[in-house]
Design a protein around this nucleic acid. Structure first.
Lengths: 224, 224
DNA sequence: CGTTATATTGATAGATATCAATACGGGTGG
DNA sequence: CCACCCGTATTGATATCTATCAATATAACG
């Protein structure tokens, strides 16, 4: 029963994917249910009753919030290993909508799971820190730095999961990226154009290839 | 023992201050220790070992993070009833610094307190939602909207705690407000000047008086 | 009362948003 | 298989906003 928690609590950084990987085949693992979510379908909707949190096993999701006028804003981009739904616990109602960007699969983690419980506060704390880092990233930095960081973040996450760190297929439109980064879609497009002219990357529509990782890293630091 | 959790879990919104208020004088309350923090002193520092979270009982705090170069950025402003230190659980090391803006007093909440534990995930979830709301506020909105929202937020919090909703003493400099809102100090100053000329409020240095709450609310909505 | 930090105010430059037109691309139906 | 269409992306011209640089004024403090 402690497999999940212990595996994940060890070390400085906690790693739920690792913990979850160990669950495969164990009695505890069998207890957890999976759920398939077809591309374009919501895993949950803002305002709906909170029931569980989810761990992405395959595919990717975007999180969005809708303000009073119904305007959609992208607040998150999630892949394999990420946890979704933590924001629903406060009011026992989901505070955002999660939509699959491609056919996806998630592990359903009931909120009072004995194996997950001791881990939960730390997981949430990490999310809190990440959220703040994202805020700091977006605030003082230029459009170029934001886009560069976004691209780098994706390549790193892809790499960590065994995919090519040089090439990937974006599943978000320019408008969605802009919404996520606090920029207008035209600005996102222009930045991609600039980075391409500087031979940092090649962006053919949504297919992105990183040509110069060092230059990309450098572009992440430009302040305003 | 369940006083704290139950009082706070009832209703749609959870309220730790209410729960804590009930603890005064009870056996559980006596168990919790208090701590005084003189003005300008840190409650904890970024990077120091995580030991507990804290509930503000009197006074106010600012949270800051220091980037690699040591540059300070204000990430939070906390008053009576707010919880501090949640970001330290992820790595068991505080991810930010909390400094008292005036002589303050906090309740020390050991992380594995039996009364607090069931409440913790919801508390953290709420913080997660707030953090995101803050991000959305800062991203697409004009300097005027940011400052107006900041002022309104303070008056509302003050009001909820029994102080005058019209007048308060800012304990942050223009530079600190700017850091918190993602603006330069000159811009903050100019916005205060503009709001003053429009008779929305009167700002004499750090003493602020709201003259026209409706106009202030209207100013919160200006996008970019 | 002087000294230093903080705040206000002005002039200018730089960045992104906005408005507008054109190009591309994927899918559908002919 | 090609032509057409609609959503998406690119590119350009201009407006708006905030940052920056700089000077002065005010407030806090010893």
């Amino acid at each position: 029963m402690h497999d999940l928690a212990c595996a994940s609590l060890q070390g400085d950084d906690l790693c739920l994917p690792c913990g979850l990987a160990r669950l495969a085949g164990t009695p505890e693992g069998a207890r957890l249910s999976q759920r398939r979510v077809p591309r374009g379908e919501p895993l949950y909707r803002q305002g709906s009753a909170y029931g569980a949190i989810y761990a992405v096993r395959a595919g990717s999701f975007k999180s969005t919030v809708h303000d009073e006028d119904g305007l959609e804003q992208v607040t998150g981009f999630h892949v394999d290993g990420d946890i979704l739904g933590l924001d629903g616990m406060a009011r026992l109602r989901h505070a955002s909508t999660a939509v699959a960007l491609e056919d996806a699969e998630v592990l359903v983690l009931p909120s009072c799971d004995a194996g997950l419980d001791p881990l939960l506060p730390r997981l949430m704390s990490r999310e809190l820190v990440r959220q703040r880092e994202r805020l700091q990233l977006l605030m003082g930095r230029s459009a170029e730095a934001r886009v560069a960081t976004f691209v780098q973040d994706i390549t790193q996450r892809m790499h960590a999961r065994g995919y090519s760190p040089r090439e990937f297929h974006l599943r978000l439109s320019r408008g969605e990226i802009g919404s996520y980064l606090g920029l207008k879609l035209e600005t996102v497009s222009r930045v991609f154009g600039r980075l391409q002219r500087q031979r940092v990357l090649r962006a053919e529509g949504r297919h992105v290839r990183v040509l110069d990782p060092a230059a990309l890293a450098a572009a992440c630091g430009a302040s305003a």
